[in-house]
Design a protein around this nucleic acid. Structure first.
Length: 576
RNA sequence: GCGCCCGUAGCUCAGUCGGAUAGAGCAUCAGAUUCCUAAUCUGGGGGCCACAGGUUCGAAUCCUGUCGGGCGCGCCA
């Protein structure tokens, strides 16, 4: 069953085909810019298209003249009551009530699939998000990227992509050695040693105590006084595994479950970075060279020029070439990361990374490396890095103090426990991710006002309470009883498939959240009309046919709200 | 000094790869509840879309510059 949106996109397309046949438009005119959407001002009509304005130049005519040709065809379409040309060349369409009733049936028929699209054609998209270092629990700094990445995954699935949700486990760098040493300290503590203050440079958090206890249980005192070389590797593996269990648990509080956890250590053990380096060297992207001291700032005291293998990222707009290996021979983060991206690209048609804004400086080099590697392999895999800006935590307008050093950061689990999964997720999705945002506990726990989640959930709950109270089953038997006010709700809801597609194309899940706000507002408004005028209430005791039709309408509005919330991973409640 | 992101109503933010009279929530003012859930709704006031140029039929949107805020700038991760 086709949605109204899909049907009209197809119709406009058919008209343009016809115009190409007639020679009005040149053959194979690109149409990517043609849109079909409701005009901002509803008095202009139900749908509008910019086709004439976008294509006029290619047709070597002016927009209004082309619009007239298009209108000639559109007027012959059965569902179109009126097609008019307005302003610089918009074509406004007014649809028959029958078209809207059919859309209502389409929502009912498609149910929880209403809004899904095959736009993505089953292409595989790998989305890497979170990828927090496995050295402690998730804190609020990770939260926004986690939610945005997860919602984007859901959105792209709805738009017809196959999505792999991936987490890159940085278990090979110096930070996991620090973790292992910190765990060893807790291990000694569990065995009865007085460890005193946690030394500078080790992780102080209490979350390592259970890790130490388990190590003590498992190994007894075997490694208590042993030299580091005997236990470091073992303790690293054990503690990373423990941290990842903890992180997975934190993520599941937010309803986030990755499909794949990729280990940097395994990647290195498989010699993937070596393979990438060899290829890059062969093709002139990597050379041995000496970096200049950093400009603008005073160079570090121990600055020494050293020859290192460098990736030519300057050729891709970066400030300087970037080392892929350290002077001690180990891979840099970048060196391993480019191999990792190449590995992902082998199994996906497109890659997306969600990063915190503090990593913005490294976007150019990794994009350059991926472009070089994938094109070299004969596969042009589009790669997009979405930057998620910082979240400023407030409580009653006052910044919440955080210090990693003392271990007093705000954990994600604390926040979810305090305000709830749905609130955290939705709040993170009501702002575009590339702008900084504020997150105020005091405002967000309040069950109203500054909290748009409840507004949506209330609309959904109202619909369900009406269904419970009505004593009549919703029915599509008499949809002709629905008037303009009611069909206006269908018009609003019918935008959902289009919003899903455009949000997916732009990779901006927050658009779903804003659409749902508009839809809920339309419903609340419709509901309240019944306060002033009882004949507008959904339940009409003396008219079961009308009641059933209005219940049917309300049910479908609820369905669309539920579908939208499902994309965002937020629950639709039936009672409040 | 350089790079990236942002600057829209008093506040928090939307604004569709350039489109019609720039929107919403909060706050504020005036109203609506014997009634399907008022956690809601109706209406009013409030704008140099940071500033200055440019591109064109048309700019909040694209380009250049300036100012302001954030993030980053070693072989860290």
């Amino acid at each position: 069953m086709q949605t109204l949106h899909a049907a009209f996109v197809a119709r406009i397309d058919a008209v343009l085909n016809a115009l190409e046949m007639e020679g009005v438009l040149p053959a194979d005119t690109p149409r990517a810019n043609v849109t079909v959407e409701p005009p901002r001002d509803p008095s202009h009509g139900d749908l509008a298209t910019n086709a004439a304005m976008v294509l006029a130049k290619q047709a070597k005519t002016n927009p209004r003249a082309l619009a007239e040709k298009i209108v000639e065809h559109l007027e012959r379409e059965p569902d179109i009551v009126e097609a008019t040309i307005a302003g610089p060349g918009f074509i406004n369409l007014r649809l028959s009530p029958e078209a809207w009733r059919r859309e209502l049936l389409a929502i009912a028929h498609l149910g929880q699939d209403y809004g899904r699209s095959d736009m993505g054609k089953g292409q595989t998209v790998n989305i890497e998000y979170v990828s927090a270092n496995p050295t402690g629990p998730m804190h609020m700094g990770h939260c926004r990227g986690a939610v945005v990445g997860d919602a984007l995954s859901g959105l792209l699935e709805w738009a017809g992509h196959r999505v792999t949700r991936e987490y890159y486990v940085n278990d090979a760098g110096g930070q996991v050695d620090v973790l292992a040493r910190s765990a060893h300290l807790r291990y000694r503590e569990a065995l009865g040693d007085d460890i005193g203050e946690i030394p500078e440079g080790l992780y102080p958090g209490d979350y390592l105590k259970p890790v130490g206890e388990r190590l003590a249980q498992e190994f007894g005192p075997a490694y208590k006084d042993a030299p580091e070389g005997e236990w470091l590797e073992l303790f690293r593996q054990r503690s990373v595994a423990a941290m990842m269990d903890m992180i997975r648990e934190d993520l599941s509080l937010l309803g986030i479950h990755h499909d794949l956890f990729s280990s940097e250590a395994e990647l290195q053990a498989a010699k993937k970075p070596e393979a990438a380096e060899a290829w890059l060297r062969e093709h002139g992207f990597v050379y041995d060279g000496v970096l200049e001291a950093p400009k603008g700032k005073a160079p570090p005291e121990d600055w020494e020029p050293v020859e290192l293998p460098l990736f030519r990222s300057t050729e891709f707009g970066d400030d300087q070439d970037r080392p892929i290996k350290k002077s001690n021979g180990a891979w840099t983060y970048f060196g391993a990361d480019l191999a990792y991206h190449f590995q992902k690209a082998e199994k996906a048609d497109a890659l997306i990374d969600i990063w915190g804004a503090d990593h913005a400086g490294t976007v150019k080099r990794i994009k350059a490396a991926v472009a070089a590697l994938t094109k070299g392999a004969g596969r042009d895999v589009p790669f997009d890095v979405k930057l998620v800006q910082m979240v400023k935590l407030l409580r009653d307008g006052e910044p919440v103090k955080m210090s990693k050093r003392s271990g007093t950061f705000v954990t994600l689990a604390d926040v979810v426990n305090e305000v709830g999964k749905d609130v955290v997720r939705f709040t993170m999705l009501t702002r575009k991710p590339d702008a900084q945002m504020e997150f105020d506990f005091a405002k967000v726990v309040e069950a109203s006002k500054d909290n748009p989640v409840f507004y949506l959930q209330y609309a959904h709950a109202r619909i369900h309470s009406t269904l419970r109270k009505a004593g009549v089953e919703p029915s599509d038997a008499h949809l002709d009883r629905l008037g303009d006010d009611e069909l206006a709700l269908v018009r609003e809801a019918s935008q959902f498939p289009r919003v899903v597609e455009s949000a997916a194309k732009a990779r901006e899940p927050h658009r779903i959240a804003f659409f749902l706000g508009d839809l809920a507002a339309a419903f609340h408004s419709f509901w309240n009309a019944g306060n002033d005028d009882p004949s507008k209430r959904i339940i009409q005791e003396s008219d079961p046919e009308l009641t059933a039709a209005r219940l049917f309408l309300a049910t479908q509005v609820g369905q669309v709200i539920r579908n939208g919330l499902a994309i965002l991973g937020v629950e639709a409640v039936e009672e409040m």
